[in-house]
Each structure stands twice: as C-alpha cells, then as structure tokens.
C-alpha cells in the first residue's frame, strides 16, 4: 500500500479547512447587524414616528434622575401600600394598646440583608415621620421614590435600572418611558423572589 503524499493529504482535508475558515471569517467579521447598530447614532423620535404611543398612565411619577434618553417615569407606590398613610397611627399620640405593633404589623418581619442580622426597620423608615423612607444621612425619601433609598446600598442595580438592564419597562417600548419601581418587584422586607410553580410546562420537542 502507498502512503499518501503530502499533496493528496492536503486535498483530503481541504473541504474541512474551507469550512473552518469561512466560519472564522463570519465570526471575526462582526459586520452585519453589529455594524449597523454602531452606525445608528441619531436618537429615534418615538412620539413622531410611532403613531399609537399612549398617554402617560396616571399612577406614575417623574424619576429624579435621567437616563440616556432624558427624563422617565416610574410606577407610584403610595397608592398601593395598604397601610398608607402611616401617620394615621404614627402620630405624636402614644399607642396604649398592648401588642399593638404585632396587631398592626404582625405580617412584616424583615429578612433583608440576611436572616441572622436583618436591617432594622429604621434603616429604611423614618422614625419621626413614618410616611417617609430615610437615607443613611437622615434625609427623607418619598415612598414613590423608594429607588433612591434602595440605590444607596445597591448602586449597581440602580444604575442598571436607570439604563434599562435591571427591572423592566411597562407595556410600551415606544413613547414616554415608564418603568417598574424597585418595590413593584421586590418586597423590601424579603427582597428575593419566592420559589413557585411555573405557569405552564413544555412538551418534549417533536421535529
């Protein structure tokens, strides 16, 4: 039997080489859509170009920072917090009922920051003005703007939330930008999502 010469050997692997090289080219090229995106630098005018953009929903507030596209809005929270206004009870009168705290807030136990050493209630709630949240420096934060309070400790998540990589936009990609507030998704007292059953299931793939 003859041993194959180098030339015939090359011929045999040629098809494989061609496939590999063309694959690499496509990979290294990065032309295509990535190039198109790089070239697109003119902001899109939602209001003018999409005819059916909706008016701003009523339960939104203007966020106190801007994102790359200017001003934006987030969902209000005060109207969704059951026990608001807190000052109905938390006023300067003393509470005289025994076990009042348990009756009023028995359902709330904070595990935020770890079960062993959770954050104290007054890291977040302003002690003397209970309708408000509080920053580390002691200034008050409106409950609709809880993202400002969370953002002190979760700086990275807040930055992503402002930019659009954390949290989510509500209903529309076009028009005025409205996003979910941190506490629309996270229970501030137990911020991890709970385990639960998926909404549906998939059947095995049939081709």
């Amino acid at each position: 039997m003859k041993t194959p010469t180098l030339k015939s050997y090359l011929f045999r692997i040629l098809p494989a080489l061609i496939i590999i090289f063309s694959g690499l080219q496509a990979y290294a090229g990065q032309g295509g859509v990535v190039e198109t995106i790089k070239k697109a630098i003119v902001p899109f005018n939602d209001e003018e170009q999409v005819d059916s953009v909706p008016p701003l929903p009523r339960d939104t507030v203007l966020v106190k920072t801007k994102y790359q596209g200017g001003i934006f809005w987030t969902e209000t929270r005060k109207d969704k917090v059951e026990r608001f206004k807190c000052s109905q009870c938390h006023n300067n009168k003393d509470v005289t009922i025994a076990r009042a705290a348990e009756m009023a807030h028995g359902d709330i136990s904070s595990v935020h920051g770890g079960k062993l050493r959770p954050l104290s209630c007054f890291t977040c709630h302003k002690k003397d003005e209970r309708d408000f949240l509080v920053t580390e420096k002691g200034s008050k934060v409106d409950m609709d703007h809880s993202y400002r309070m969370c953002g002190q400790c979760h700086f990275r998540q807040q930055k992503d939330w402002v930019g659009g990589a954390h949290g989510k936009r509500v209903s529309f990609w076009a028009g005025k930008r409205v996003v979910k507030n941190c506490t629309s998704c996270h229970d501030p007292h137990s911020p991890l999502f709970e385990k639960r059953w998926p909404k549906t299931y998939s059947r095995p793939i049939v081709k």
């Binding site: 859509v33 198109t36 995106i37 697109a40 630098i41 003119v42 902001p43 899109f44 994102y67 790359q68 596209g69 200017g70 992503d160 930019g163 659009g164 990589a165 954390h166 949290g167 989510k168 936009r169 209903s171 990609w173 076009a174 979910k180 998704c185 999502f193």
Partner: peptide
C-alpha cells in the same frame, strides 16, 4: 410584558437611547 423578573429587554436597535442599546453597550 408578561415577564415578572425583567429578564427580557426589547427595543429599537437603531435608537442609541433605547434600553437594548444600553445592554449591548454595558
């Protein structure tokens, strides 16, 4: 719209101020 965790980002790739462009950049 249905995603409860915000794992899904959708938008206009030609709009430099869109969320999807933020993701691709950052």
């Amino acid at each position: 719209e249905a995603c409860p965790t915000g794992a899904r980002v959708f938008g206009n790739l030609l709009d430099p101020k869109s969320e999807i462009r933020f993701v691709l950049k950052e």
